[in-house]
Design a binder for these strands. Sequence first.
DNA 1: CTGAAAGCGCTTACAG
DNA 2: CTGAAAGCGCTTACAG
Lengths: 338, 338
Amino acid sequence: VEIAKLAGVSRSTVSRVINNYPNVPKKTHDKVMKVIEEYNYFPNISGRTLAGKSVHVLGLFIVGSFNISVDILTNQFISSVIESASSRNYHVLTSIIRNAKDPTSIKNVKEVFFQKRIDAGIFVGAANHEPLIEELIAEGFTIGIFDQELKGRSEPNRIVVNYDTTEGTEKIFHYLYGLNHRKIGILNGDLKRFTGLTKYQEFVNMMEKYDLSVNPSWVLPGDFNEQSGYQAMQTLLKKEKGLPTAIIAASDSIAFGALRAMNEYALKIPDDISIISYDDHLMSAFVKPALTTMHVDYTEMMRQLTLKIISIVEEGNDQFIKMMFGSELVIRDSCKKI
Amino acid sequence: VEIAKLAGVSRSTVSRVINNYPNVPKKTHDKVMKVIEEYNYFPNISGRTLAGKSVHVLGLFIVGSFNISVDILTNQFISSVIESASSRNYHVLTSIIRNAKDPTSIKNVKEVFFQKRIDAGIFVGAANHEPLIEELIAEGFTIGIFDQELKGRSEPNRIVVNYDTTEGTEKIFHYLYGLNHRKIGILNGDLKRFTGLTKYQEFVNMMEKYDLSVNPSWVLPGDFNEQSGYQAMQTLLKKEKGLPTAIIAASDSIAFGALRAMNEYALKIPDDISIISYDDHLMSAFVKPALTTMHVDYTEMMRQLTLKIISIVEEGNDQFIKMMFGSELVIRDSCKKI
DNA sequence: CTGAAAGCGCTTACAG
DNA sequence: CTGAAAGCGCTTACAG
């Protein structure tokens, strides 16, 4: 605070002014502020941090081996976190982890935490049980996780936000059944991820509940992205021996890929097959046919996660926090009554 | 480096090991490294920075008043910068600037620089002449700019990467003219931005060169995003008095919006109108009809910009740097010979 | 080749 | 209410 000593006070006082401490008379405050404004002075962040202040940075870790760029949802996550953090005067350091098992990637992530570059981290797209995340939590770092359900793990520095897949899947079945669909297939997401697995499990549960039988060849593997939906649909169509009347896609991106494949086979949607998915991401209304899908408010979810984490960084926390969000069916043009 | 003193050497030596200085015998090096590995030690970044090292962070500033989330290109920019920086062991602090004129936003951006949170900044989506950027450059900060052309400004800390709009527009006209289109309209981007303006200027130039006359009611304003394309196309269609046979959209997003509007008017593309655009972003191949567009390798552009900036941060620079990239026509299904 | 010391820019008890 | 001093975790001349 050398320069601002021009105000005729000590650096201690300047520091007190900057940090808005109460025991500074208005007169002194104003005098110092004037000099600060005038000289365009901003306190060096490294100095502050070293002296014990938080660095005011959140780490955002996007994990996924697919091409991030193509995934619209990812973008939505990133901007929501950045904007929410920004509203509290925090910054965001974003990292992309292509492979959470790669030693170099692991080291880089740890480095960010241990170097104290960030006050807390947020993980998106990780497997439900990810050793790297568990290690970080064990080390005591504050970690926000989108999409996780780990029994018995309830450390106060683990902050989880989930989408209520069970309720969402119920709504889907209610709708599909009402449209008289009985032959239903599923294009799965990544089963290592919490929602990936539960969407499938709930699919099985619901089929049972509605007294429908699961046809194994209508259950296709996938990875939440467009490409995997395209491939899954292709393998389904190649078989040609009986198609379901309705398909549930674990994500809109998967549905997009499926649409592309069906297009190539000259299938009409929803006339030949109905398709419904989860997410309602930003392109889903624009595609042809517009997707009927479960709207999940990811922007709001990430906003609350981010805000919660910031408040924990600043005020501490002593209990496990888990947030759960519902979803709404958005009916557009990809499903038909039969 | 307290803890690592367990290695039985001074902190000076540990520091020398960490920074890989040459004057350390292999034996000492190994001994220290062993302790470091063992204790999971990473040097505190604030300490390093305060002692004179660079912070190893780049600032990425995305300016745009539209909803970032919807813009697929933005995502591509962000990931390219993050991944390129990551390959050189740099991190990226991303900020979204909704309004570059807003005093609070301006202050926040300046703060990031003056606080020394970052070693350099990269701006994407700013107006060609943006006072905030000019001020930062005048202050001596290293600034990378995507899309700018300012006569006479050639400071060594201004690093510019541009897309060669002139050549791109020539290719478009060559193609459209070859398809016998003579009645050509344009859906403009943001004219405050360099490519926005030049796309329009080159449109006018080319019309003249091909001896075609510009119909003012076929020149529509826009802002590079989907929504503006939708609106522009709507106002064009509402008039109903004579439509062009071909339309050039200043971006794929604009073309998407236009497609949506044309769809509502039950126009068939490319049978009723041909449409061609710039960008070739990641959804353009998937839309119906697949877009014929100028492919610009933004990922590579941002990669080179990022790498160049990092090398300047590390090694300095004494001359103005400007990079220019070309584009290639990708013919898909949205244009037709008439 | 390596250690002791100074210094980077801040904040915060501690006195007064 | 405010200043002098110590300390945060590093790096880097400076000696030796």
